[in-house]
Amino acid sequence: MTAPSPIEHLIALMARLPGLGPRSARRAVLHIVRKRAALLAPLAEALQAVAQTARECLNCGNIDTADICPICASAARANGQICVVEDVADLWAMERTGAFKGRYHVLGGTLSALGGIGPEDLKIPRLKDRLQTEQVGEIILALPATVDGQTTAHFIADEMGADITISTLAQGVPIGGELDYLDEGTIGAALAARRAF
């Protein structure tokens, strides 16, 4: 049995990426090999750089290239608000909006009764530490609108104490959503959270 060629090895690795399968990975590899100067070499350099420098922020759990990410390092973001998210992808999604000016805390998952994920598996103690050191006045729970996500939200709210304001993201009709296509749970939540117009 001969070892796979480097190109086959690259295709196999690419095929393990989200959204790619063996066929699409083959197409992608063929494309970057053909664009050797414009894509292959820079991609290899970028991957090498990320492999050497990417790390988890020691404060919030964001992924960046420094021990403390730019959001945590910025004094302008210390406005007394911490937005709690499930994982880094959620943090990046919030950042894309540009609407939130505070800091984040990445839990690294949600409580799951069936999955056996308990409070000790999440970064809740670190969040409690941050309440003291960063003089936090409000925690915004931006957790998934799922049973596990909301169970986690209630758990955190209980853990944080009464002197902290706890808020959550609104739940209801998305932009562009038509009522006819929404499940009754979402419509019910939207109705319960209605406001004066």
């Binding site: 009764a113 049973v147 009754e184 749970g185 979402t186 319960a192």
Partner: peptide, 20 residues
Amino acid sequence: TRGAQVFTSKLSLSGLNAAC
């Protein structure tokens, strides 16, 4: 779907989790 009934209630959520 029973999400709307439970999301705002800690008791219902924890009970649903326990039963499941």
